[in-house]
Simulated scan of single mutants.
Amino acid sequence: MAEDYSDHLLALVEHDLLPSSYEAVFVAGSVVQGWGNTGSDIDIYVICDEAPSGVVSAHRVGLQPDAVAVSQLTTNDHKLDIEYWQDGQVDQLLDKVSWKEFYSSDVSGDRLSWPELRLLERVDHAVPLAGAGWLERRREQTRSTAIRSLMVSRALNYTTLFIEDAIGQLESGDVESAVLSARLAFGNVIDALLAGEGKYGQSGKWRARRFRAVEQDVISFEDYWAIETMQDFQPDEPAIWVRRVVTTCRQIARQVVV
């Protein structure tokens, strides 16, 4: 049975955190995906022209206006993190990840801020509290953008950079740094693989969850987890592990479709 989040909408009303006029309200994040724990926050998005007057904090974004108002509310059961986005900001964000932009500009994804990427990755699993039609329309629009390919390209770019770092550091005798670079390369190539299957995300803490949520035959969970947790790492011979991980990264990267 689906979780009922309607009490959170009432909580916003009771604490004057819901504007008098809005287009949609939805919840998203780890709790909605079934990944949360007792300490997890509930992430709420409100689409409106203007946040309530009492909201004074903000996240900076590369849009106009260049800020997203944010607020927090602690109820008896949960801590609510609330973001207030304008509909026009969402339009601009979708334009940023359009196929036209993907083919005509930098595709590294670094020009997308953390709040922007987080909204894009959460729209797909969000649960509406109000304005279900708005959310479904934006969900379909997001799926038709280049966000999947952009996130794959971004992760592959970082994979290449960290592989080059690991090799160069080994050659210069900086083995400890090479180990760290190899770990970063592996995390990014797995992110690229998962993004290619439509499961992209920014936080490494959910990588294993994202891995289990997709079906692919490039690498098994057991083999992934062995490298992620460095099960075969030998402190006396770190270079062997680095070279093995670099080889694995290259093998996976060749099978990822942008």
Rank of each mutant, 00 (worst) to 15 (best):
A2T: 08
E3P: 01
D4Q: 08
Y5A: 03
S6A: 11
D7C: 08
H8V: 14
L9I: 08
L10D: 13
A11H: 06
E14P: 00
A28Y: 15
A28V: 10
G29I: 02
S30H: 04
G34Q: 08
G34K: 02
G34S: 06
G36K: 04
T38D: 15
D41L: 09
D43C: 04
I44N: 08
I47A: 11
E50M: 08
A51R: 02
P52R: 05
P52L: 08
S53M: 04
S57K: 13
R60D: 12
V61S: 14
Q64V: 13
V68A: 05
A69N: 06
V70E: 13
Q72H: 11
L73R: 12
T74E: 12
T75R: 11
N76Q: 14
D77E: 13
H78D: 15
E83Y: 02
E83W: 01
Y84G: 08
Q86M: 15
Q86Y: 00
G88V: 10
Q89A: 05
Q89T: 03
Q89V: 04
Q89N: 04
L93S: 03
L93G: 01
D95R: 08
K96P: 00
K96T: 00
V97F: 08
W99T: 05
K100V: 09
F102Y: 15
Y103S: 07
Y103Q: 01
S105L: 05
S105N: 10
G109N: 01
G109A: 09
L112R: 00
S113A: 10
P115F: 05
L117R: 14
L117S: 07
D124K: 13
H125P: 01
A126E: 06
V127I: 15
L129W: 06
A132K: 12
R138V: 10
Q141E: 15
R143D: 11
A146R: 07
I147K: 09
I147E: 05
M151K: 12
S153D: 10
F162N: 12
A166N: 05
G168W: 01
Q169E: 12
G173F: 11
V175F: 07
S177G: 02
F186K: 04
F186N: 05
I190P: 02
L193T: 04
A195H: 00
G196R: 00
E197K: 13
G198S: 11
G204A: 05
G204L: 14
K205P: 05
K205C: 13
A208C: 03
F211K: 00
A213Y: 03
V214C: 13
Q216N: 11
D217A: 12
F221Q: 03
Y224L: 05
W225T: 01
W225H: 13
E228R: 06
T229C: 03
Q231N: 07
D232K: 10
Q234C: 10
Q234V: 09
D236I: 01
P238I: 06
A239C: 01
R250I: 05
R250Y: 00
R250F: 01
I252M: 11
I252F: 09
V256F: 02
V256C: 07
V258S: 08
